[in-house]
Nucleic acid binder design. Structure first.
Length: 259
DNA sequence: ATGGCTACGATCCGTAGA
């Protein structure tokens, strides 16, 4: 089983690339972030024609998340229960026998800003939510754009980024609090090449210079981590004309090890 | 050089992203 996540930065603009990537990569389920559209304008029919059902939580202009699945997603829950938030950043669904939580974590803008405080509050609420989800669902995957580069090796230029938003110690502590629940960063289950990132700035030839951050992640519960056979980033869509600034990340789970 | 791109929704610039 193949599970993936991709911040598409506008599903309207990226739909042709998304359809092409679904054809090529053929994931069983895909978490999307930054749809930047309301549900009424979500391209549900086109994705159904491509073989994918959708659970969607959208809004105009900003945010918006979806879970695509070859099988109809069940028990759909939008948002973090008990955490009032206008911003559509979270959707959860049951895909086959997996619980999948799709997240678009806040950017945080700048350390010390109001948005940064919101980011940390939001992560605390996410941690509590995932703790409860883990108790209900031993087979839990949390996939999305976390807007945190967990370690310096996830940063192209740690010196330049030191203390900045996405790498600051409180943000990394919020990330580690998720791991402390028993979730594993699937990417680090395996030996990986150096300088693998999932986001590159549109400016300054960021992609060409590989000046990136690894901020898109797939977290797996112990049960799923045991069945995980690979975790990677697919840079190919970032090379296309008019790309998203994020690349898809994906894991493969061995069905027989899940049984 | 603290900018530089891209998307959006409103125009013909401001907000936001990371």
């Amino acid at each position: 089983m193949k599970l993936a996540t991709w911040n598409v930065n506008s599903i309207k603009v990226r739909l042709p690339q998304l359809l092409e990537w679904l054809r090529e990569a053929a994931p069983d389920a895909l978490c999307l972030q930054e749809l930047k559209t309301e549900e009424a304008k979500y391209p549900r029919a086109e994705l159904e024609a491509a073989g994918y059902a959708s659970a969607v939580s959208g809004q105009k202009t900003y945010n918006g998340v979806a879970i695509l699945s070859r099988t109809p997603p069940g028990e759909v829950v939008a948002g973090i229960p008990g955490f009032a938030d206008e911003q559509k950043r979270v959707i959860a669904a049951t895909v086959r026998d997996l619980r999948v939580v799709c997240v678009y974590c806040p950017n945080g803008q700048a350390v010390g800003s109001e948005k940064y405080a919101y980011k940390l509050r939001w992560f605390a609420a996410l941690r509590d939510y995932l703790a409860a989800e883990l108790r209900r669902h031993p087979r839990l995957a949390v996939a999305g754009d976390f807007n945190v580069a967990p370690e310096d090796r996830d940063v192209h230029d740690p010196k330049a980024w030191e203390g900045q938003v996405h790498v600051s110690e409180p943000e990394r502590a919020a990330w580690r609090a998720l791991l402390a629940l028993g979730l594993k960063d699937s990417f680090r289950l395996f030996e990986q090449p150096e300088k693998i990132y999932s986001w590159w700035d549109y400016r300054m030839l960021g992609f060409r210079r590989n000046a990136g951050l690894r901020i898109d992640h797939l977290l797996l519960s112990q049960d799923l981590a045991r069945a995980c056979t690979s975790s990677s980033v697919d840079k190919a869509p970032r090379k296309l004309e008019r790309p998203s600034d994020h690349a898809p990340a994906l894991v493969e789970l061995d069905q027989s090890m899940l049984a």
